[in-house]
Design a protein around this nucleic acid. Structure first.
Length: 205
DNA sequence: CACGGGATCGTCT
DNA sequence: GACGATCCCGTGT
């Protein structure tokens, strides 16, 4: 039982996914699997927005079996397999029918570091424990089995909390998103957000 | 520290 | 049948 409030649907239902990507910095991502709570402070995100963003899976509102989740209501988890190996965790935003999402790329470990180390097969805490979208999900025990769950559902095993951690605009580094060179002019948009000087953000390009 | 390549499989063409 | 919203390890400096 946590004393911190979960983010409400009103947080996720807003239209501006770029703003939500910034607002998620400093919020706390929590999982509760096998009676093990583990959590970390979100320190890096990327925004993706249909229909105009060529880097978004749902570009031009393309509806496929995979992208279907992105059209769900804000607060839904969108988890998919990348490069056949890594499970990437996104938060769907905006109301149902609008395919916006924020990719959570890195967290700063906060609670139950022991279980995170175990899930990663590591002994010591290093940035690579949770810095990077694929390793972060592994540390928290998130997999594509969690695709489509609602983070606002009180019964959900994955959610995001507000610990009143303030991240000012000056502390946010804005840069182009990673690994989307194919997205032409959209590849230049500064839709990647990191907390300045935080060692648990993934490496700059 | 920079780089290059292999792993590995779901998704869409 | 090609490719990816990645990671890790090896090599070389």
């Amino acid at each position: 039982m946590s004393i911190f409030p979960r983010l409400l649907p009103s947080f996720y239902l807003r239209d501006d996914v770029v703003q939500i990507g910034k607002d998620l910095l400093g919020k706390v991502l929590v999982t509760d699997f096998d009676h093990q709570i583990s959590a970390g402070i979100i320190v890096e995100t990327e925004a993706y927005r249909a229909p105009d963003d060529k880097a978004c899976h749902a570009y031009l509102n393309r509806k496929t079996k995979r992208t279907k989740t992105m059209f769900e209501t804000g607060g839904t988890a969108y988890v998919y397999l990348c490069y056949g190996i890594h499970h990437l965790f996104n938060v769907v935003t905006a109301k149902e029918g609008i395919a916006h999402a924020v990719l959570i790329r890195a967290i700063e470990p906060l609670e139950n570091i022991k279980v995170m180390l175990k899930r990663r097969g590591m002994e010591q805490v290093k940035p690579q424990l949770t810095a990077g979208p694929g390793v972060m999900t592994k540390a928290l025990g998130i997999s594509k089995d969690h695709n489509g769950i609602n983070l606002c559902d009180p019964a959900s095993k994955v959610w995001i909390e507000d610990h009143s951690i303030q991240v000012s605009e000056e502390e946010i580094i804005k840069s182009p998103r990673v690994g989307i060179d194919y997205a032409e002019e959209c590849a230049l948009w500064d839709w990647r957000f990191r907390i300045k000087d935080n060692r648990f953000t993934s490496k700059a390009k």
